[in-house]
Structure formats: structure tokens, C-alpha cells
Design a protein around this nucleic acid. Structure first.
Lengths: 106, 106
DNA sequence: TTATGCTGTTCGCATATACTCATAAACGAC
DNA sequence: GTCGTTTATGAGTATATGCGAACAGCATAA
């Protein structure tokens, strides 16, 4: 087997290993949005947003739709949110661990 | 709020953006294992495995237990598997998309 | 039709930093 | 000393990131 699922996964996670890209995906939870819209929302230069969107596009995580001057981006596979939510769960569990550790110090 | 959840997530995903580390986590699905055990399983130098385990340890994804000469590692929070499984789901959906695209060509 | 402006993309640059892997040495338990 | 594990080191490679400028596409005003 020349291809391993672990490589696809690691590649996918690499795409997700950037705060801006994660925030872009989160911004698209409510539905499609234009580049400038996202840029203002995140307070990041539009060119940077466009770059990060290109990365997300290259991995088929988002799709674009052109309408007049605007380009509207949207999520391609909502399953990515499962990944993000699972990461949040790990984060929360971690917080609980830290809290418990602090309580033991008292 | 100086801290954003997106930063925790991106940091976590960065840890996961390595095929060896993913395979280590998968190897620990069945339970705790020693370093050499994992190394032989993945056909990677024990020192490399130890290095990657140190990364996983630093993010609290695994715990270690010492017993004699051996150090047994295990998963700290099974929720990480939700992340890995969700990534696999995205991968499978992607495969379906590709297959559908190919069928349209006929 | 031409001019103007808005939206988004891309390029080039600068800068910094990171990652992986392998070898070898050190460490701790027995 | 031996075994299993960890750490130090270094080479090589790669990559990220952000910014600003130039550019292209579309729409509307003049």
C-alpha cells in the first residue's frame, strides 16, 4: 500500500494547524461569506485571507461561488466541524485536568 | 481575552500533523505499550519514537508509566480518537467526491 | 464608451522559523 | 555491564507568515 491514511490525516491536520484558517472555518459555520466579510470579521488583511482560503481550497475544505464583484466561500464537507469540535472537547478535558491539579494543591 | 481557543486547536493540530505521531496514537488504541514495542511495530528508530512521544507528552496527549526497564505509554484522553476518526470521515467523504467526479467523466 | 471604484487574487520580498531524522552519548534500573 | 529509554547535537530541508503592490474582473457612474 503506497498510500497511508495517516499521511492524509497528517496533511489535513497541517492545514488546520493555523489559527486564521481555523477562524475562517468557524466563520463559515453560519453559511457562505465573502472574502472581505471574513477579513473584517477577523481583522486580517484581505490578501492574507485570500491566501489562507487558497490553502483551504487546495484541500477541498471550502468551495467558492462568484457573484458580481463578490466571491462567496462556503464549507464543502461539514464533517470538518466534527474535527474542530472534537479538538475543543480535548481542550475542555484538558482544562478540567488542570483545574483538578490546582485543587489538589490546596 | 488574551487566549483564543483557535490557538489551542491549531497547536493541537500541529502536533497531529505528523504521520509517525498519528501512527503512535493509533498504536495506543489497544492499550499501553512500551517504546520498543511501538518502534518495532512502526519500523522506526526507538530514539525517534521517544522524541515523538516527548512531543505528545508535552501536549498531554499521552502518559507514561515506568516499570523496571520499560516505560509504558498510554492515551491520556480518548477524545483524541474522535479527532482522528473525524479526520478519517473527511477523508472518506473526499474519496466519494473523487469517485463521483470520475463517474461523471464516463 | 470610458472612467472609476470595489473585490479578490497573485507575486515578490523579507524574515523568521521549524521540522525531521540519524547518530552517538548519557541515564536509570536491574 | 546490559537493556530500554532519553537527550544532545547537527545537517539538511523546508516552510510559514505577513505586507504591500500590481493586476484582473465586474459594476456602476459619468
Amino acid at each position: 500500500m503506497p498510500f497511508k491514511a495517516s499521511h492524509f490525516k497528517s496533511d489535513l491536520f497541517k492545514v488546520l494547524s493555523n489559527p486564521v484558517r481555523i477562524q475562517i472555518l468557524d466563520a463559515l459555520r453560519v453559511g457562505e461569506r465573502s472574502v472581505n466579510d471574513i477579513a473584517e470579521w477577523l481583522e486580517v488583511e484581505p490578501s492574507s485571507i485570500s491566501q489562507q482560503l487558497a490553502v483551504l481550497r487546495s484541500r477541498n475544505l471550502v468551495t467558492s461561488r462568484k457573484q458580481g464583484n463578490f466571491v462567496f466561500y462556503s464549507i464543502r464537507d461539514p464533517a470538518v466541524f466534527k474535527i474542530l469540535d472534537a479538538a475543543l472537547e480535548v481542550f475542555n478535558n484538558h482544562l478540567v485536568d488542570v483545574r483538578d491539579a490546582l485543587e489538589k494543591l490546596e
